[in-house]
Nucleic acid binder design. Sequence first.
DNA 1: CATCTCGATAGCCGATGACTATCAACCGCG
DNA 2: CGCGGTTGATAGTCATCGGCTATCGAGATG
Lengths: 302, 302
Amino acid sequence: MQLQQLQYFVAVAETRHFTRAAEQVHVAQPSLSQQIRSLERELGAELFSRARGNIALTDAGETLLPLARRILADADTARQEVQELGRLERGRVRLGATPSLCTGLLPDVLRAFHDRYPGIRLLIEEGGSHDLVRELARGALDLALVVLPLPSPSPALTTLELLREDLVVVSSPEAPAPGTRGRSVRVSDLQRERLVMFRHGYDLRELTVAACRAAGFEPDFAVEGGEMDAVLGFVRAGLGVAVVPRMVAARAGRDLRVTPLTRPGLHRTIALAHRSDVAPPRAARELQRMLTEASGAAGLPR
Amino acid sequence: MQLQQLQYFVAVAETRHFTRAAEQVHVAQPSLSQQIRSLERELGAELFSRARGNIALTDAGETLLPLARRILADADTARQEVQELGRLERGRVRLGATPSLCTGLLPDVLRAFHDRYPGIRLLIEEGGSHDLVRELARGALDLALVVLPLPSPSPALTTLELLREDLVVVSSPEAPAPGTRGRSVRVSDLQRERLVMFRHGYDLRELTVAACRAAGFEPDFAVEGGEMDAVLGFVRAGLGVAVVPRMVAARAGRDLRVTPLTRPGLHRTIALAHRSDVAPPRAARELQRMLTEASGAAGLPR
DNA sequence: CATCTCGATAGCCGATGACTATCAACCGCG
DNA sequence: CGCGGTTGATAGTCATCGGCTATCGAGATG
């Protein structure tokens, strides 16, 4: 039994006429006759009663017809759906990102992506780099925005650097400016400040703590454990200062004092990770492209 | 897209392994690879991510899989159903019969047929010969039990004589026996009787009336218009006598007097009719066979 | 009776799917 | 670090099959 034979069969059943059915399916009449015969032979039953000028379905034909129609319809649907997938009219991207990135780079790009491909569902998983890497390897994510270096690097993952972000110190405009030199602040100056610190899992936490230790002191937390918004809120309220990406600080509005770090300062490298062994789906590749483009404009060069 | 390709595709999707899938579908691995490739080319999308030792479905594959399964299942169902039809495990026979035949020959044969082929639905249409012939020609019936000669014979119908039935006179045991000679009665004797007559449409009505006229008189109806059961009931109640097939009279029980007609008496020829241009369905042919057999035993020879 | 219609048949040809042999990449093992 | 083993891809060959044209044959038609 072949799809083509079913198609021929349905054409004959509909036209009740071999010659016209042959025209309808764009094939010579003998070919169609032959295929119908072959289908009948395989099924072990006549499908049509071939009374001259009065082709009619037999019981077997009557039984087969609805199934044949359904099979052909399903085959059409299959073709349709796969092609829509290819044209990014449908589909899904499962993107992981660290919380700080969700606040920074992501919203604009996701907005642009969704405007361009409204049929693609975007599933965002917010989590620490460690979790994201695991989910990627499990195949539960197509792409992840992570901060380099990865906590558990693996050859199974390919990373593509997107951009390097400066970190800055934010503080309440009402409190005295941090540091001693006004325009910028050194890491060591943070020893005199109390910090508002993210919860465990934020790469910014590890990064900041590591920087303080490298400068020879243990940071002093005024409060710790919040998400990005909470941290900014605490800072705004004057509980302490925080080290955040410049982009986040810029978005946070005017009611925060932003003080850059003295050179070389602190940075973090944001990268896009995906499994090395399988190419990400079309839609994920397209999102990857848009992210690369956006961050290229935003700034890997600098 | 071909059913075979879908089968191969599902096999690979299930085993996640080309070589094992090839074994499962009894084909060499390169053939399977090639078919999958060809399917992918036609659909314009990769169906599998071929990471060594980790074959996985792509989005497109994931989309196709459920449809492919369903298509294959439908194809199986189709094969199954058509074959059950051939083995008379399923199906239907649409049989027409005149009312008097429904009472006579039919019940036993239908019982035997149904016992033997419990999966076949039996649809009986009771009607006058004229209606039955029309329904046959329309294709609304597969077979019809009719009384010859047909009111509107047509080359489009083939008839096969089944048996000749004697007609007898039935009367109430409490009334005086009809006729004058005790053991049998002549048609002309019916002039002195009042008849219980079937409704229009019964061949027995036409036949009896024609016989009376041939004998030179117009029959006198005590009551007319009933079905077979009603007629027998009226006769039993003593309203009059009736001319019915011997087989019906025999079934009607002891509380009816049965008087044969003097030779040559009256007969009717029962035949099986079907369209000449198309062979009846398998199940109908089988019922035809059983009817022929049963009536052969019952009596065409005599 | 000639003609037309329409499905079946015959014969041929190119496409295609299956096979064997082999390659290439990757894995695990010593 | 090299070496078989595994596994999917590739190459080349061949038989099959589906498509085509030409033609037949049975009914309908005028």
